Computed example of a mutant assay.
Amino acid sequence: MTPHNASDDSRWSDLDRPPLNVTALRRGLIREGGLWSAIDVVQSTGSTNSDLVARASGGTVEEGAVLVAEQQTAGRGRLDRQWSAPPRSGLFFSVLLRPAEVPVARWGWLPLLTGVAVAAGLSRAAGVDTALKWPNDVLVTVGGEERKAGGILAERAGDDAVVIGVGINVTLRADELPVPQAASLALAGAVSTDRDPLLRAMLRSLEDWYDRWRAAGGDPAAAGLQEAYAVGCATLGRTVRAELPGDRALVGEAVAVDGDGRLVIATKEGVQEPVGAGDIVHLRPA
Rank of each mutant, 00 (worst) to 15 (best):
D247Q: 14
D159N: 12
R248P: 04
S184I: 07
W36G: 01
A131W: 13
R173L: 15
R88Y: 06
S94K: 06
A161G: 01
V116R: 14
L225M: 03
V140D: 07
V102H: 08
I280H: 08
D279I: 05
V140L: 14
G115T: 08
D175V: 11
A38Q: 11
E63V: 10
R212W: 01
A161V: 04
E101D: 14
V163I: 02
S205D: 02
V162P: 07
L199W: 03
R27A: 15
V162F: 04
A126C: 08
R78N: 13
V179R: 14
A56Q: 01
E63T: 14
V61G: 11
A201K: 07
D260N: 06
W213S: 07
G75H: 08
V118G: 01
A249L: 10
Q181P: 10
A161N: 03
A6Q: 00
R173K: 14
R147I: 04
L172W: 13
V142L: 13
G189Q: 10
L263I: 04
A221N: 03
I39C: 12
Q82K: 11
P3C: 08
A24C: 11
A242E: 02
E227G: 15
A249P: 11
E269W: 13
N21Q: 12
L25Q: 12
L122D: 02
E207A: 12
V104P: 12
V275K: 02
P87D: 11
G108T: 02
A24G: 08
L263P: 02
R195M: 12
E176T: 01
G158T: 09
A174W: 05
R147E: 14
V281W: 10
R124T: 14
S47T: 02
Q71K: 09
L225P: 01
L112P: 13
L177I: 09
P19N: 02
T48K: 05
T267M: 02
V41C: 12
L225C: 01
R173N: 09
E273G: 05
A161Q: 02
R55S: 13
W209D: 06
E253W: 06
A38S: 13
D129V: 11
V255P: 01
A221E: 07
A117Q: 03
A38P: 01
S57V: 15
T60Y: 10
G224L: 14
G127W: 09
S37R: 09
A6W: 09
A286R: 08
T60N: 12
P18D: 00
G270T: 00
A228K: 00
A256C: 02
G276Y: 00
R81D: 00
P3L: 05
S7Q: 14
T267K: 03
V257E: 05
V95L: 11
D40Q: 10
E62G: 04
G28N: 14
